[in-house]
Nucleic acid binder design. Structure first.
Lengths: 272, 272
DNA sequence: TGGAGGCCCTCCCCTCGGGGGAGGGTCAAA
DNA sequence: TTTGACCCTCCCCCGAGGGGAGGGCCTCCA
């Protein structure tokens, strides 16, 4: 009777390729039960099939090998389940991104010219209650924004609020980097409290476009506004302002959302 | 007035990184409108923002750059939509695989021992109507199987049929390669017709396990059967037989499916 | 009219999870 | 004993970027 299953037999039972099994051995992810010291032949035990199948399926879910390792290392089934559940959550987020990409593409690939109603406006100086963070990544921004907005809403009941809330976002965020982010609400009597601070926002000239609907394809509106700005010989002068004229706090129907995007701009002087 | 947008400005508007834009230039996917011949600075036009956004979103959907190229090259919006739709179909298949992986993992990670009821049996010699393909890949097998089964069903009406249909699958399929595949149905009066041939299947000793439910996690049953075979000092002697005792043609409720997996085996003689 | 500091350039190497293939040793059935 | 399938190591390749070094360029402000 043999030492165990050869790598080829084991590959068939675990649906992994022979090469991949060798790689997993090399990286310590799945050690053969025995390795012949003279021939270096790998032999596996049938009890290892389950482990190999777990690896195979986790990899199908794009779990990185390092994480597979920690899932396998977790003795406690609960802890293991938590790790897997964490990855499933990431899969759901990935699905959201996929959905947004499809929505956005549908708009981008719509035949015919894409109209954009943009205009120049001036945001007057005003005093608002705000929460800021110095360095957030774009993908963390949604969570951060919700938390901060909840804090503002808790501190200023509806009677205190005047006008729609908004956010100010550093332009570096658009390039994938970290950047400053502010969420604000105009209120009757702004006051500092906890993370909330009183912000004097100066008057600023803006190029404005209104995005209607959920934010899945807001990048398209940004692009159209950016094109409008560039083609009107304007330069970008600061972080973008979003004003949530109608947002998730006003209606549960995302189709009705209205987001005003305002980009501080200045007129470029023509070159001589 | 400048030549256009610098790479950094363009990156922000298209949500691509500067590095990525340079890569797309290098690979001819998205050429800057002008390149300064002395400094090699890239300048983009605002009209290119839409194209860059399309690329960005397609990449989010994991469309390979080569395919992005052909989508962009398609002038006709319909043709373009077809290419995109093709990829969306692939995304759906990916989603099916993800679903199967989750089902399978749930079973694999279920705490406690995993019972398997396997037994040795003999499939008697018999004559069946069959369709074979010499070299199919596992991921093509589902489509191929459905087509072939439909042909068999069309040629042999219910009154002709005796017993459950099945398939014979080369073991190479399990390792990701191509292999022979046969779908068969026992019928009263087998006859060749079109792709259908009459197959004399010899008697064979099988290790058998029954998989209950949809095939999402059938790999686990295969693994358990394989472990059982290995631990009983048996060797695999030929292509695996699946018999669809209850299948999609019998009930729309996948939970009720019963698939008998039979692996031809022989007794290994103990080493001296 | 300088600088300073932020952009931008190229070039090279790294990542991750494999696949292809060369060149050569081993195992087991005929 | 031969033969053919199987296994070994080693090296290179892929795609789609990211990191960083080293150095030039642009533009704003003093």
């Amino acid at each position: 009777m043999r030492d165990g299953l050869t790598i080829g037999e084991f590959a068939a039972l675990s649906r992994l390729s022979v090469r991949t099994l060798r790689r997993y051995h090399e990286s310590g992810l799945l050690e053969p039960a025995t390795v012949d010291p003279f021939t270096n032949y790998r032999y596996y035990q049938s009890a290892q099939i389950g482990t190999a199948q777990v690896i195979h399926r986790l990899r199908q879910l794009d779990v990185p090998l390092a994480e597979v390792r920690s899932i396998l290392a977790a003795e406690d089934p609960h802890q293991r389940a938590d790790l897997v559940a964490g990855h499933l959550r990431r899969l759901e987020e990935e699905l959201d991104r996929t959905q947004a990409a499809i929505t956005s593409l549908r708009r981008l690939l719509r035949p015919g010219p894409t109209p954009i109603k943009a205009y120049l406006g001036t945001l007057p100086a005003r005093t608002v209650a705000a929460i800021s963070a110095p360095a957030v990544r774009l993908d963390e921004s949604l969570d951060w924004f919700d938390t901060a907005m909840d804090e503002l809403d808790a501190a200023f009941p509806p009677a205190e609020r005047i006008g729609a809330p908004g956010g100010v976002y550093a332009n570096e965020l658009l390039t994938g980097g970290r950047g400053a982010m502010t969420v604000f609400r105009p209120v009757r009597h702004p006051r500092a409290e906890g993370r909330i601070e009183v912000l004097e926002s100066p008057a600023v000239d803006l190029a404005v476009a209104v995005h209607v609907g959920p934010h899945d394809d807001i990048d398209v509106t940004y692009g159209l506004l950016g094109a409008w700005v560039a083609s009107h010989a304007l330069g970008v002068a600061g972080p973008v302002h979003e004003t949530y004229a109608v947002g998730p706090r006003d209606t549960a129907e995302p189709q009705a959302w209205r987001t005003e995007i305002g980009w501080p701009v200045f007129r470029l002087t023509p070159a001589p």
